[in-house]
Write a protein that binds this DNA or RNA. Structure first.
Lengths: 231, 231
DNA sequence: GCGGTTATTATGTGCAGACATATTAGCCGC
DNA sequence: GCGGCTAATATGTCTGCACATAATAACCGC
């Protein structure tokens, strides 16, 4: 009817405005696509694009035939970027380097083997790497790699960090990430040059390619590390 | 030419397969939309939908005229759900409760005032809340609220947690979240019933409605807390 | 009333064509 | 060779139409 918004982003903005203004209250159904298209004077596909985007953001809930309604619990979703360590350090304007502390075939600890779903007794490549920013310890990486799932030949991990090599040479299909806080053990404190017990920000990740486990890694960040995101 | 995939998801899957199979290597440009549409025997809009989705996932990078290329640094994006504390506790199958420890108008510390962009001397409502899971300390919430930006009247925050009331009564337009690890201070350790120095997982959030600051909050999680997500 | 089948409805997706817009590549004059 | 203008090009978006699909609502026989 009245429509002056142009483009699907304008429509998204207007719908969002109405939700925020409580014109359309949480849990309440909003007009269907055809009606909105008529009101805004655009094609239904354009309205669809806008509403689909809001649904992806968790603001709306849509079901066929049932229609579109304002989400009751705005499950607020944040998206995190998971960069390569080198890029992360360089983005802070610091110089990046790393030292390979250990590289050997070994039997992984039970939790790692379980998590990756490996047969007992499978041996993996165990890498421990210290990443440095401006020469100071930044991150301790403790990684288990499944050679059977990797393209051969493997590189010299003292020359290229496993982190970086994997990103450019192995495509994973799925994985999971967990963040937590831990007190530094004696050993880890020594490696990072910190007092024992210092609170470390820990990232644990495991990745698969199809059904094959590729790697499980634990990253212990030096104090001051913050994972930041906008919503 | 050959195309049998049907639907934009099939096209996305096929493109992804080629990327993973290294048919199209990282950094390399892939055929343009028109060519792919011809190959798959579908409309360009359908290819566009698939490629747009992969670009949103960080797998592809697209620029007008420059074309589409496989992302060099698969800046993997993970989406986090940020639930209300009550829902989070109940999702673990535990019973939720909370205790309001403090509620008073006060002058916020400088970092908080700066972060919210407040004029010096502005007074805010300071709330401290202990959230419990099965009666045990789960989360210590230290919140500064800007009453000027809130709908009146304010509720009794001893009866409904600020967390929950805000979600259902105040729509924010933007905000930011940061995660870090900190050693528990004496005071915080006492509140959470932990030894001093315990590593705490800390979430800091601030939110705005338009240009108005609404709230800044610091959440200190008891040990064992993990933020988890799939990619 | 009750259970199960059928019709209706809102969203999901597809197509072909058109125009908009950002960027690059090439051209031109100096 | 170099700076700046211009044209070419790939993506971004919109339209109007069509059909598919999922889920509800209506109906009907019992």
């Amino acid at each position: 009817m009245s429509g002056q918004p142009k483009g699907w982003e304008a429509i998204r903005a207007e719908v969002l405005r109405r939700i925020r203004a409580r014109d359309w209250a949480p849990g309440e159904a909003i007009p269907n696509e055809a009606d909105l298209a008529a009101e805004f004077g655009c094609a239904r596909a354009t309205v669809n694009r806008a509403l689909r985007d809001l649904a992806a953001a968790g603001v709306l809930e849509r079901r066929r035939k049932a229609g579109t309604r304002v989400a009751l619990h705005p499950v607020r979703k944040a998206t995190l970027d998971i960069p390569v360590t080198r890029a992360e350090v360089e983005a802070r304007g610091q110089s990046y380097s790393f030292r390979l502390l250990q590289s050997e075939m070994a039997l992984p600890p039970v939790p790692v083997a379980l998590k990756l779903g490996l047969a007992p007794g499978s041996r993996l490549l165990h890498l421990r790497t210290l990443h440095l920013a401006d020469g100071k310890p930044f991150l301790h990486e403790d990684r288990w790699l499944n050679p059977a799932a990797l393209p051969q030949p493997l590189p010299d991990f003292a020359a290229i960090s496993a982190n970086e090599w994997l990103v450019t040479h192995v495509a994973y299909t799925s994985g999971d990430i967990a963040f937590s806080a831990e007190n530094a053990s004696d050993a880890e404190a020594a490696i990072l040059g910190l007092p024992k017990g210092t609170a470390l920000f820990v990232t644990e990740r495991s990745t698969w390619s199809e059904a094959q486990p590729i790697t499980a890694v634990r990253l212990a960040h030096a104090p001051g590390y913050r994972l930041h995101t906008l919503v």
